[in-house]
Write a protein that binds this DNA or RNA. Structure first.
Lengths: 122, 122, 122, 122
DNA sequence: GTGGTCTAGACCACA
DNA sequence: GTGGTCTAGACCACG
């Protein structure tokens, strides 16, 4: 809600988010190979360098490991899923609270309105 | 979190959001005159047409009214604030629930984790 | 000594090393601004992107911080120097021990030969 | 640590180092025949001229001798090993001291930190 | 001006 | 084939 204009997240970070969500939803299985840099690049229509950067970031986050000449693989770590879920969850909650504050919702209401919304949804 | 790339909201809608938040935070008083299209345009460095479009949208939403030869005014309506707050709130909650679902958080947890976060914040 | 051929460290990492050494030798004062990306690029004759990457790496290592529109600054942290020195020292010792092992020098000799060399140097 | 960029040692010198290490580690026995220039070239995927140059350098260093029509042989000289070891050792110590100086480690520490490191390793 | 991101296209090492 | 690095040149947001 803060004025952002063209900003939005960098493409490579959006790709990082997308891949993490795929892992959490088990569309990307632990230990499996991600598409090659070039393949993924044509698949989603960006420059290979952008994918490269996304994969590097994922490696820095210890989500994937790269084996030279073989490819990029999701790390097989039973804790990985929980850690990823937790960090993304914190980010989402953070954003929620920030935006609600901005429009003048009290903490009490942040909870009660959410409860009400979820009840309606059923 | 949904892959959007360059997209993000159109600029004029971001300006609409910004003005609504200003009203909710009483930086824009009910009944008061908004800056002229030209003035606002230079203020935030955007084409006057973009501001014009934002003001039109605000008029369509019955948030402002334009008086020929005088300018654009925030409608003096005590219910307005509540309505605006409600619609923005719904949007924010919507987004929160969608993203939490995406990373596999249950409805129960959506509430309990939020409560936990707000408690920590104090 | 292990066969490396063209390998050698990537240029951007060599730049990182160089800057860290400059900091340790106080040629780069804590809190001071590094040359701009473009300036440094022409200075040492590489592409600005390569400098950019070096600066990013330094930021990741918490050695510098970047202030948007202002530049890249060495972090003012009294512990920084000691930490940097320690990590580089470990790297150098590591390499020393590995190479000495390779040519069949015993641990005892790794120390005594070094002592002998340093005595000669005076 | 010294800025070198693309440089690194010439390939033929790296091959020289490799062969000397093989001799020191007794993977290449004294008096034995080295692989032919052509054989070695395909073995490590390099131009035969590069191997030729490496062998010449080894001959200049009195490490091997070439017998016309027979091949290149490691010289059978009991002192050879010690001499090689010594010269490589000096090179390694040299580099160690230079780098440690560069990051501001005192001579005392160059020894004590090494001792500490070797103790840890056990 | 500053740093940050992105594209296009190249070359390298490893397998 | 794979990932990793580098150049060239462009556009953006921030101050």
């Amino acid at each position: 809600m803060t004025t952002e204009f063209q900003s939005s997240k960098p493409i490579y970070m959006q790709i990082v988010d997308r891949i993490i969500i795929d892992i959490l939803q088990e569309k990307q299985i632990l230990g499996d190979k991600l598409p090659s840099v070039r393949e993924k690049a044509v698949q989603i229509g960006v420059n290979p360098n952008t994918i490269q950067r996304a994969y590097s970031e994922l490696e820095r986050m210890s989500v994937v490991e790269t084996r030279r000449g073989q490819g990029t693989f999701v790390i097989e770590n039973s804790h990985l899923l929980d850690e990823l879920r937790l960090s993304m969850q914190t980010e989402v909650i953070n954003e929620y609270v920030k935006k609600m504050k901005e429009i003048g919702i009290t903490k009490q209401q942040m909870i009660s309105e959410l409860q009400h919304y979820l009840k309606e949804e059923d």
